[in-house]
Amino acid sequence: MTALRTFEARAGWPALRERLATRLSESELQLLDEAVEFAVRWHGEQRRPAGEPYLEHLLEAVLVLVEGVGVTDVDVLRAAVLHDVVEDTGCSLSEVGGRFGPAVAELVDWVTKAEPVEGQSREQVRAAYLERLRQAPEDALLVKLADRLSNVQRLDTHPRPEKRRSYYRETLRSVVPLAQGHPWFRQWYATWAESFAFLEDAS
């Protein structure tokens, strides 16, 4: 079985910035500086389920796009940094657009789950969100695929076994099909699915 490639950003933004300097210009890095600063301010002390600082997840998504896929479009990379800021903080989409422009805001909008309306369950919202992604533009799909990669690459560290199983199955059902038009992501998710296949039968 092919070894699963994982992406880590534990060293923080300064170290990652230096690493990306071989692929991005200083002016592009400065645009990313602003996005990282904005994300840090809004996400604050938030942590991921396994306890790591939220920023690590955001930077992992950037690392996936640059070093895995070869993306250098700074708007796509800024959207990766900001992809959870509307969904998981008090920041509005208009604030994102006002600071980073309409292209970034549109990408963030595509990967943001809506709030439930009256009579709608969170499960229904999630299903509608995943269905809507099937119509997303290519750049938004890249952000989403990088986001989910970061979330599932160490799925066995999630503190809730039932969430590991449900997230594995949801990823196979709703996210892996989105990767089929992107060769690098298609191969990565195929290796990932094989690596975590034990979750399918876990009790």
Results as ranks from 00 to 15, higher is better:
Arg132Asp: 03
Ala103Met: 06
Thr72Val: 05
Gly119Cys: 04
Ala193Cys: 02
Arg132Glu: 01
Leu16Cys: 03
Gly51Thr: 07
Val66Ile: 07
Asp75Trp: 04
Met1Pro: 06
Gln180Glu: 15
Arg41Asp: 14
Ala193Asn: 04
Ala190Ser: 14
Tyr54Gln: 05
Arg17Cys: 02
Ser166Thr: 14
Trp188Pro: 01
Gly90Val: 03
Ser150Trp: 08
Asn151Ile: 13
Val64Tyr: 00
Leu93Arg: 04
Glu162Arg: 12
Ala9Cys: 09
Leu24Glu: 06
Leu32Gln: 08
Ala197Trp: 07
Arg48Leu: 15
Val175Gln: 01
Trp42Ala: 12
Leu24Ser: 05
Val86Gln: 03
Asp33Phe: 10
Gln46Leu: 14
Arg154Cys: 03
Val125Thr: 02
Glu131His: 13
Arg169Tyr: 10
Pro102Met: 09
Val143Ala: 01
Glu170Asn: 06
His83Glu: 10
His83Lys: 11
Arg132Trp: 01
Asp147Lys: 08
Pro161Met: 06
Thr191Asp: 12
Ala179Lys: 06
Pro102His: 07
Ala3Leu: 12
Asn151Thr: 15
Arg48Asp: 10
Phe198Leu: 11
Leu31Tyr: 09
Leu82Gln: 02
Pro159Asn: 05
Leu141Pro: 01
Val175Thr: 15
Val76Ile: 07
Ser203Arg: 12
Asp75Lys: 05
Ala128Asp: 15
Gly98Asp: 11
Leu155Tyr: 01
Gly101Lys: 09
Glu162Ala: 10
Ser25Pro: 10
Val85Phe: 04
Pro183Asp: 13
Glu106Ile: 03
Ser94Tyr: 08
Lys163Asp: 15
Val36Arg: 05
Ser92Trp: 00
Glu138His: 10
Ala103Val: 10
His57Asn: 05
Arg122Asn: 12
Leu141Asn: 00
Pro159Gly: 00
Gln187Ile: 00
Pro161Gly: 10
Arg132Pro: 02
Gly51Asp: 03
Leu133Ala: 08
Glu170His: 11
Val74Gly: 11
Ser195His: 13
Cys91Thr: 03
Val64Cys: 00
Val81Arg: 00
Tyr129Arg: 02
Gly181Asp: 11
Phe196Val: 07
Lys144Cys: 02
Arg160Pro: 04
Val96Phe: 02
Leu149Thr: 15
Ala80Phe: 08
Leu199Gln: 08
Gln187Ala: 15
Glu194Arg: 09
Ala3Tyr: 00
Ala21Thr: 01
Glu37Pro: 03
Tyr189Thr: 14
Phe7Gln: 00
Met1Phe: 03
Phe100Tyr: 09
Glu52Val: 13
Val76Phe: 08
Phe7Asn: 03
Ala21Lys: 13
Val74Ala: 12
Arg169Asn: 06
Ala193Gly: 04
Leu141Met: 03
Leu20Lys: 04
Leu4Asp: 04
Lys113Ala: 14
Ala39His: 12
Leu59Val: 05
Val36Trp: 09
Glu60Ile: 15
Tyr189Ser: 02
Asp88Arg: 11
Pro102Trp: 13
Phe185Trp: 13
Gln153Lys: 00
Thr157Leu: 06
Glu162Val: 13
Pro116Thr: 01
Thr191Lys: 05
Gly119Leu: 13
Leu32Glu: 08
Pro14Cys: 09
Ser92Ala: 12
Lys144Glu: 15
Leu199Ala: 09
Glu170Arg: 14
Ala140Asn: 02
Gly97Leu: 02
Lys163Glu: 15
Asp88Ser: 13
Leu142Ala: 07
Leu29Gln: 04
Ala146Met: 06
Pro116Glu: 11
